[in-house]
Design a protein around this nucleic acid. Sequence first.
DNA 1: TTGAAAGCGCTAACAT
DNA 2: ATGTTAGCGCTTTCAA
Lengths: 382, 382
Amino acid sequence: MARIGLREVASRAGVSIKTVSNVVNGTGSVTTATRERVEEALAALDYRPNLAARHLRRGSSGLIAVALPELTQPYFAELAAELVRAAKARGRMVLLSQTEGDEEAERALLEGRDLPVLDGLVLSPLALDAPALRERVDRSPLVLLGEHVGDAVLDHVTVDNCAAAADATAHLLSLGRRRVAAIGAQDSGPNETAVLRLEGYRDALRAAGVTYDERLVATVEQFHRPDGAAAMARLLELPEPPDAVFCFNDALALGALRTLAVRGLRVPRDVAVVGVDDIEEATYTTPSLTTIAPDKQALATAAIDLLLRGGAAAGLPPQTVTVPHRLAVRETTAGPTPSPTADLLPPTAGSHPADGPTPSPTADLLPPTAGSRPAPDPEEQP
Amino acid sequence: MARIGLREVASRAGVSIKTVSNVVNGTGSVTTATRERVEEALAALDYRPNLAARHLRRGSSGLIAVALPELTQPYFAELAAELVRAAKARGRMVLLSQTEGDEEAERALLEGRDLPVLDGLVLSPLALDAPALRERVDRSPLVLLGEHVGDAVLDHVTVDNCAAAADATAHLLSLGRRRVAAIGAQDSGPNETAVLRLEGYRDALRAAGVTYDERLVATVEQFHRPDGAAAMARLLELPEPPDAVFCFNDALALGALRTLAVRGLRVPRDVAVVGVDDIEEATYTTPSLTTIAPDKQALATAAIDLLLRGGAAAGLPPQTVTVPHRLAVRETTAGPTPSPTADLLPPTAGSHPADGPTPSPTADLLPPTAGSRPAPDPEEQP
DNA sequence: TTGAAAGCGCTAACAT
DNA sequence: ATGTTAGCGCTTTCAA
């Protein structure tokens, strides 16, 4: 059974190739009569366009590449899910790569090496710094994820990391904590995010009149759970250990919580904890994690829209979109440590409080209920 | 700046188009002298092949579509990561879709509607049942993820769900538990996985001479945390509540743990818990989760290899690959509940015990340490 | 409103 | 060892 092309359809409908093409694409104008005949033929032959040919001709592919460091990081997985969804809503498919922090991989992506024709690239750079990014040769639109100071040259979409960190820290201070540690500073690498979050942390301390204590800032290699766990362990060995920790992301916070639990420290009584990202898991740990929740859906939508606008390739000036974030207050800073009395739960009835961008201290103590989101039905097929 | 094609390169190097093509693809034979000239031109002009054209000509694209229900489920995210990696190792890129449990979306994928030319499709079906899958029209190779009873017609790769469930249940029974509940049965839908895991659960009970008690089997809508939390709550209301729970996946187990924690029940003392999937999070909950760990890397590699072998499209008989799984014993069934005494942790030194396929009761009590895996450097760029 | 023909950039036959 | 030519299936001028 040979592949069906426009030719076959045309001959069956007794019209020319062009007419069929018109019908398929809704271009030109066709009599209702011929259109019907063509559509009948289309259906009968089960015609499906050869996209490679179409792309060759049109020069665009309907494909958007999304390059993230690592899909196993829940934050990126959730972001990827939103990006795929947003792209689909705009009729685009997503080509997914994992850079795994490899500079060479990021460079290859930027240069469009070994890639099909793309409508654009959404990149969350890790290894590459601003100058390297600016050198980009390829002309297909590029949108960067994440904040890049002093880089007004490229389109990017981000949250205000500095403000987010300040909000988180201020929340801890508002609880009366005074030895507020930070986990997530980095010695090296062009990780602007870490720099900005540290800055926000310091800003908040300053605003509260708390003096900055270098020993309370723990450096990590990566933003992963083990790093958070190790960092927390180090902080606990200080002569005056912290009574609160701001972790630069949720993975670090979860690692820190693990260490605290193992050491028998009570959260939030002994140590209060805040993270950033609001990964789904943050709602479900015990105690559940207070965190800065960036609007991931807005992030994804903005990235795709920015991309499809055409960016520099279309002669537009570079844009920066900053999406809102909110503080989701949960048990690690507010709720009671789980106890037999609590029938806060079971998480069965009620709906997820849709708190606005302003911190609302009572919100988010409960995990969302089964029906709280128009979720699909993903079951399990290992 | 016009796009550089073979023609431009050819004229600059003073050779024919074909020769350039030969150099680029390593086909034919070229004198070292001319090759060098061509390569110089290639580099000077920064030639990049137009993949759309190449695909049109070759009829294959180097693209593999991977369709999973939902990337926000850590299990699928981890699987996706492995699939992307495996595909890259074979020189293929991955086009990622989320079906979100939508039957129509799965069907569209199967029929290749609106898709670029693909070298194949890896699908984890949710809504579609065996007959629907068999009807597949499209001829590009297809590999199914997950077990599909009575479906020897299609290539698929899976773990032995029945055995896995039996192993998990047997482990709980070996702890002396006798009221072993199950969370994850399903009323409806073609979810073969749920059926098989229930079967394994019953097998293990039977083998241990424990009578099956229907009331101990909790049904869920989806395999998500809230469902697990709600199911656990229901089980606890039984006149004789369970002393152990086998959850059909880790997400359900984490939900159940949350409910147990909130109710003040101690794990594993009061209730022991086992999951399936071994998502990364399972290592980091407190207490850490005992779970069945399928070999995800093997799963991904097998899927990609099966796909590239050509499958039915190449006239090969359908194959079923069953990848191994192991029981990863952690705190929810063995370790002490976290207490001040424990300096099992901090997770700083030592290396992750690489336990074999046989359950080793002492293994896996510690989270892996930062250096335990040749991990990349994913930091954070929200 | 519809048809004929050219060509997107590449690779595969077939020359030379 | 290299060059020439003919399409892959589609969209797009340009005519009819």
